[in-house]
Design a protein around this nucleic acid. Sequence first.
DNA 1: CTCCCTTGTGGAAACGTTTCCTTTGTCTCT
DNA 2: AGAGACAAAGGAAACGTTTCCACAAGGGAG
Lengths: 358, 358
Amino acid sequence: MSEERTGQATSEAKAVTIKDVASRAGVGLGTVSRVLNGNENVAPQLRDQVFRAVQELGYHPNSVARSMRLGKSHAVGCLVTDIRQPIAAEMIAAAETTLGRAGYTLIVASTHFDNRREAELLSLMQNRVVDGMLLTVNRDNDPGVTQLLAAINIPMVLWERSPGGAFDTVLTEHRHGARSAAAHLLELGHREIALVAGHLDTWVGREQKAGLDAAFAHRGLEQAAGLVFEVGAFKARELEALCRRERPITAIIANIDEIPGILRFCAKRGLVLPRDLSIVSIGDASILEVMTPSITAVRGNGTKVAQLAANLLLKKMSDKQPEIAPERLTVGMQLKIRRSTAPLNKGDGHGLGSRDRA
Amino acid sequence: MSEERTGQATSEAKAVTIKDVASRAGVGLGTVSRVLNGNENVAPQLRDQVFRAVQELGYHPNSVARSMRLGKSHAVGCLVTDIRQPIAAEMIAAAETTLGRAGYTLIVASTHFDNRREAELLSLMQNRVVDGMLLTVNRDNDPGVTQLLAAINIPMVLWERSPGGAFDTVLTEHRHGARSAAAHLLELGHREIALVAGHLDTWVGREQKAGLDAAFAHRGLEQAAGLVFEVGAFKARELEALCRRERPITAIIANIDEIPGILRFCAKRGLVLPRDLSIVSIGDASILEVMTPSITAVRGNGTKVAQLAANLLLKKMSDKQPEIAPERLTVGMQLKIRRSTAPLNKGDGHGLGSRDRA
DNA sequence: CTCCCTTGTGGAAACGTTTCCTTTGTCTCT
DNA sequence: AGAGACAAAGGAAACGTTTCCACAAGGGAG
């Protein structure tokens, strides 16, 4: 009866601590703690008393104090460049599920390609506030970054990045993806192929470029210069220029984020897909399947990447001597041929050329 | 010279604490602490000594200990149903930016519409591990949930949810959005309009339904029964049934997530948009603008919702007596008329009807 | 019967901060 | 010159938990 009042009072004033529970249950602090975790060797009667006290007081263990004592936060930091990219969201969701099952909470932060913010966040997380990190650094070809990462002595796994040093990484086979996309277009007769890759400061972008080159090289061809761009730095102006070249492009391989912009440009200029331009998206989405025309895409598997990374991180976090050998896992990509790619339209039928001459 | 050795040893063994810095700098603990924050009234010479010691030892303040002492974690919990929904990602990104500027870190978790997981996460965050919460609960028409939320004595703001009690909320005007979509279709002559709304256990879904009803009522019409569905529970089977009704539907208003599925169905059945079916998406994306036909949509502003929510939360977290009055902010929606909606094709031209009879 | 071991319990110590209190030293005013 | 005030700095206490140590009680073996 009078207990109700106590319950009320609790919710408005001070936080309930283990000490309150102990005195309420008429037992010692150690006993409460033992009951709450593992409850090894506690008399059943006391156990019940403790549980009742917890109920009545509405006690919640303070995980900050817990972390401090244990030196573990059961939190994992997750750094991405932009959570708004569907692929990033997919990876985060999968990592959250996998790590959540193991009792870890995810702390997510986006750098938005701001290097200062990245350094800040990295430093923030280093303050022993996280037990491990899942990282997508802004750029991985900078010795400074490699050094920065090497200085971190918390278990960490890199996603889609591969800096020089010896780090655990999980990667999508972007080289193979871009190569198969390019091979597909070459097979269709295209030669003037533009690529809008990920940032060339990242493994992703470099691999995509390498994949394109490989496809050309495989046929004994050489890719013309000036046809490779980075996401973000590819606007209508650049596309316009590609169409006004002496040999206008006939196909484009682009990051999925750039597809809407490219299609808008095509619509404005009256270009018809795939007659006037063949398009391959790097990255897939169900909407691409149902558009008219449906968009050919190379599809990765972000969920799998994230699961592998999360499991690898879990392993590293549990290992007593995590200095085994850095692992490097890869996940494949698959070309989904749809209707946005077609054989090169030779002669006067070629939309871009004819319009330019008109 | 010999300092290098010390630096090395540090990185592999124990964490560097403020005590180490103090003894290294030859000052007291209090002085180090004062230098590190605010540095009010410390002799310049000592300040320099402290900074040098911090540098040499590679000291990082332990934010867990900090949180414990201060009773503040500078972290905000962010609960969403699914981070993979682009709108959720957009909101998280905006909230992160706003809160990050104020020195807060975001802890993101998805419930995936699992009520048990939701309860777990709420309990987890309540452990004083966060200073505030941004919530999108699974369902807000359940007295149990209202009660659960009322029991939380941490500042919190609800996103896109409106349970019975008195909570701070930021909402998108989904009623207005759905109503203007429906009014647009009614204006075009459509009468058999299906709606694929958000979960009807949430404010979003209920408001969308209410908006549809309001549009019909405004014209003195009554919406036929059985035409309202929830996302997730709307598959090809349901759509098939809608086309086989005595009066087949001629228009559909659907959550953006369902658009690919609907389009796939149309393609399979040979339905041509907008001749055979008019479509309005709830939620907008740039890809919708560039499809053929472009898709009419009602557009919200997730970024604005998130900014309002974040700022409201910041206010609540700083307020000494946060028991002022719960605020309820709303953000508008806008109908973007494109080419997926067209006047009702009366008579034999109606694709659905004619095909069904064939 | 005594001694030792086992089982169960209570409480101190420690985790790394910040804050407050005390002490020391210096400066200024009378 | 003495006293009072104020600035600067050192260190103890406290935040809430877990773990370890000490101790009591009980039982079994010698």
